[in-house]
Computed example of a mutant assay.
Amino acid sequence: MESRVAGAGGQDWWMLPLELPATAPSYRSVVLRPFEPRDVGMLLDLSTDPYVPKIGTLPAHTDEAGALAYLDRQADRLVNGAGYSFCVADKETGEALGTAGLNLGPIAAGRASAGYSVAPRARGRRVAAQALTALTGFAWTVPGLHRVELYIEPWNLASARTAEIAGYQREGLLRRHQEIGGARVDMVLYATLRPGR
Rank of each mutant, 00 (worst) to 15 (best):
A6E: 14
A8K: 01
Q11P: 00
D12N: 06
W13I: 15
W13D: 11
M15A: 10
M15H: 10
L16C: 07
A22K: 13
A22L: 13
V31G: 00
V31Q: 03
L32W: 00
L32T: 09
R33C: 12
R33V: 08
P37N: 04
P37A: 06
P37V: 08
D45C: 11
L46H: 03
P50Q: 09
V52R: 06
P53Q: 04
I55E: 11
P59G: 13
P59Q: 13
P59S: 14
T62Q: 13
T62D: 11
D63Q: 03
D63T: 07
D63Y: 07
E64M: 08
L68I: 10
A69P: 01
Y70L: 07
L71H: 13
D72I: 12
Q74F: 00
A75M: 05
A75K: 12
A75Y: 05
D76G: 08
D76Y: 02
D76A: 12
R77L: 08
V79H: 07
S85N: 03
F86L: 06
C87T: 10
V88S: 09
A89H: 06
D90T: 02
E92Y: 02
G94A: 06
L97C: 01
A100L: 02
G101S: 12
L102F: 05
N103Q: 03
G105N: 10
G105R: 15
G105K: 14
G110D: 15
A112D: 09
A114R: 06
A114L: 12
A114F: 08
G115D: 04
Y116C: 15
S117P: 01
A119G: 07
A119M: 02
R121W: 00
A122D: 02
R123C: 09
R123V: 12
G124K: 07
R126A: 14
V127W: 01
A131Q: 11
T133N: 07
L135N: 05
L135Q: 12
G137E: 13
F138R: 04
A139R: 06
V142E: 09
G144Y: 04
V148I: 13
V148A: 04
E149T: 06
L150P: 04
E153P: 00
L157K: 14
A158R: 13
R161L: 00
G167I: 13
G167A: 14
Y168S: 06
Y168Q: 10
Q169F: 00
E171G: 11
G172M: 09
G172V: 15
L173N: 09
L173W: 01
L174K: 11
L174M: 15
R176E: 12
Q178D: 08
E179N: 04
V185W: 05
V188A: 00
V188W: 02
L189K: 14
A191R: 01
R194G: 07
P195Y: 07
P195H: 12
G196F: 10
